[in-house]
Design a protein around this nucleic acid. Structure first.
Lengths: 226, 226
DNA sequence: AAAACAAAGTGATATATATCAACAAATGAT
DNA sequence: ATCATTTGTTGATATATATCACTTTGTTTT
């Protein structure tokens, strides 16, 4: 891990409610860290000492359990903030974050972050709104992953990648088949087989890391039906 | 639904960080509502107008999806607060709450609640901590429900009921087999069969609504192994 | 108490999905 | 370029779990 200290170029939407003086304090202590593809930005269970802002690059968020099973929860990229529910609870990380490509991040001391929350009500309120959005997303994830069958779950993953991560019906992904499996709660082999089915039905086209969604309406329908 | 207006006798832990003046404001506007067993306290999708504090009685929290499948997320009882992630986002309920027995609740206007959050930093911070705990619980739920097999999931449910809800190895529950199924993401029939297996193995005893956990260590082991 | 209804329980069968084993293709190292 | 290693792919088989049809038990209603 390279550890180049310099200024952040970008500013997260999240920090909009800070005043100039507060922004100056943040600027004074924050530092940039570069991660190479495959490197772990932080590991589940470790101490939460900084709130991390992604300046550049895509990262995957992993929920790991004691039996070596992993859920790939989501993909984070600029201007996402990586905090995690350890903030103001046990100050530990409850998921791991791994860089999918070379990634540039900005570290903000969590003690400073807490001071900002305590001294700026709109900032606190926007954090509360953010956390509630996270909870809504987790509700949806819980429903999708437990109630839907493989086809529906894989359709969800493909729609998520296309709409949210790559913002295009056509994309080349850094995710392996196993990553896609971990996102969709299925095995490697089942992902491959189901992708093959989708391809045979003319819903998508894919080869290796290349994906193209041909019939989004059908995919949405599969997602809805579960 | 009866709608008897009077004072709340109990005060949630949650409101500890309020000062006297703020408590007075809350007291002035809050009102008590009684629900009978089976009645819906609020329905998923409806407007979030009040934060509800449970004074007495047990309620179930239901996550409903568009295909009529339901997850029973948890059981709430005094001194739990029912707010939900609609607060400061879309001001809608993202789950339904149904009374399992006669339940006494205290309604607090959500606009007043928001004012309190904005005017009292420690209160805001304790809300943030609460939301983060909720997220940690959801992470665990997500991992448990997607990674574990039936035995492990049902073991989790039994441990939850014994430890958290009834706080005794022996309890008579208001939950039906279907409720237990919805908590454990399995069918009615599978719950019955698995309970029978546990009984045959001397891990639990149960008959109708009566449950007794005989070998908690074994149950914990089943839960861990998944 | 009888009837009606809901909830609990059982067995047979179907189905979704994982597992295993083997191989092909792509990628990286020497 | 060749070998080694990982990643992707395929087919055969095993297994967990749902579904369906039915019986039994318990609980409310008249």
């Amino acid at each position: 891990m390279q550890n180049k200290v310099n200024r952040c170029e970008a500013k997260p939407v999240f920090f909009n409610s800070l005043n100039n003086e507060q922004l100056k304090t943040v600027n004074a202590s924050r530092f940039v860290v570069h991660f190479k593809a495959g490197e772990t930005i932080f590991k589940q269970g470790s101490a939460l000492t900084h709130i991390i802002y992604i300046i550049e690059g895509k990262t995957k968020v992993l929920l790991e359990d004691s039996n070596n099973r992993t859920i790939l929860l989501k993909i984070l990229k600029q201007p996402d903030i990586i905090g995690g529910p350890g903030f103001s609870t046990d100050y530990r990380h409850h998921f791991s974050v791994v860089a999918l490509e070379d990634t540039k991040t900005c570290f903000i001391d969590v003690i400073l972050f807490k001071r900002l929350v305590l001294s700026n009500q709109p900032f606190a309120m926007s954090l509360i709104a953010y956390l509630n959005h996270e909870i809504i997303d987790l509700f949806d994830k819980l429903k999708d992953l437990t109630n839907k069958h493989m086809n529906g779950r894989l359709a969800d993953t493909l729609i998520y990648l296309s709409d949210d991560v790559y913002q295009s019906p056509e994309f080349t992904t850094l995710l392996s088949r196993s990553d896609i499996a971990n996102m969709s709660c299925m095995t490697n082999e089942s992902v491959i087989r189901t992708l093959k089915d989708f391809k045979a039905d003319g819903i998508i086209n894919c080869k290796g890391s290349y994906f193209k969604i041909l019939k989004k309406d059908v995919l949405l329908d599969i997602s809805k039906k579960g």
